[in-house]
């Protein structure tokens, strides 16, 4: 009973880490350009497919494949920003068309990869080829531990970058006040590209980490992303801390719910949590209420 609970907690934290990584991407893009990128989850899918291609197709060692796949996903993110996001953004004063365009782009990307890789789900071997490791008498799936550790490393790295480098500070400054940032000599367009690169690379990392647990399909990203989006809202949508706490929380609730309540509604729990939050605490755990200035 107790060991089952520990196993579930580890699994929940692992899934939650994935949500947290994608939620971070949502938050980074939202705080810098004030628009939600609905194609965010598809970069998880892209990352996973890249990883499969590199490991299974090109026989790269997993660590090298991981770095290349994450970097390539980030590059795809920049391409997305330049080709779709920025043109719509420049054309419209309203955010609604931008959002709609990202929805359209998301559908397009999914179908494009379906076309390239075919409808059969692909398998990716876990990084450690062991079925379980025993920690204090509890058997745990090693990939879960990999996910948790890599996510923790990544979050630390991101935190260091944002808080302790000039570039990170310039990114924050641009997000807070782009016009003033330009007056400081910050290349705002580069910052936007960098933001997209980081956000989508985080998504790609999430996708390739979770790939051995699930299978790799064209739609894997959008279902994960919806839950990550819920996590970002629960966290307040404007703070990195909120995205992480929200992601882990949603992961745990989903995993516990699937075991202790009912497995068939596994995908519904995050949304039920979300709706409860929206009704009782719409600005999330760490968010601030912002009112429109007249």
């Amino acid at each position: 009973m107790f060991s089952e609970f520990i196993q579930l907690t580890v699994a929940g934290l692992a899934v939650g880490s994935i949500y947290a990584l994608i939620a971070l991407g949502f938050v980074l893009i939202y705080t810098s350009v004030n628009v939600v990128n609905f194609a965010q989850g598809d970069f998880a899918m892209i990352g996973a497919y890249f990883m499969v291609s590199l490991v299974v197709g090109a026989h790269l060692p997993w660590w090298l494949a991981l770095i290349v796949a994450v970097a390539a996903t980030g590059a795809a993110g920049v391409l997305f920003q330049l080709l779709i996001f920025q043109p719509v953004r420049n054309r419209s004063r309203n955010f609604l068309p931008v959002m709609i365009a990202t929805v359209g782009a998301s559908v397009f990307l999914e179908q494009l990869f379906l076309l390239i890789y075919g409808p059969i789900p692909l398998q990716l071997a876990p990084i450690f080829a062991v079925d379980s490791v025993s920690i204090a008498g509890v058997h745990v799936y090693p990939q879960y531990l990999v996910i948790i550790v890599v996510t923790a490393l990544m979050v630390t790295l991101l935190h260091w970058f944002m808080e302790h480098t000039r570039l990170g500070k310039q990114m924050q400054a641009t997000a807070q006040d782009p016009d003033t940032a330009r007056l400081m000599g910050i290349r705002v367009a580069w910052m936007a590209a960098l933001t997209f690169a980081i956000s989508t690379a985080l998504g790609g990392l999430a996708g390739l980490l979770i790939a051995p647990v699930y299978t790799v399909t064209a739609t894997m990203g959008s279902s994960i992303a919806l839950k990550a989006f819920a996590a970002a809202i629960v966290g307040g949508f404007s703070s990195m801390r909120g995205a992480i706490v929200g992601g882990l929380g949603i992961g745990l609730i989903e995993t516990y719910g699937a075991t202790y309540i009912s497995g068939s509604y596994r995908d519904a729990y995050p949304f039920i949590v979300l709706i409860i939050f929206l009704i009782f605490r719409p600005h999330g755990l760490f968010g601030e209420k912002v009112s429109q200035k007249v």
């Binding site: 939202y30 628009v35 609905f38 609604l96 989006f229 819920a230 519904a268 995050p270 949304f271 929206l278």
Partner: peptide
């Protein structure tokens, strides 16, 4: 009624959530 409390970004997501729950 739920949407009244939300800005449009959240609204899109809540409707997707509703869509998925209905499907389930």
């Amino acid at each position: 009624a739920i949407s009244l409390r939300l800005d449009s970004h959240y609204l899109a997501l809540v409707t997707i959530g509703f869509q998925i729950i209905t499907g389930l």
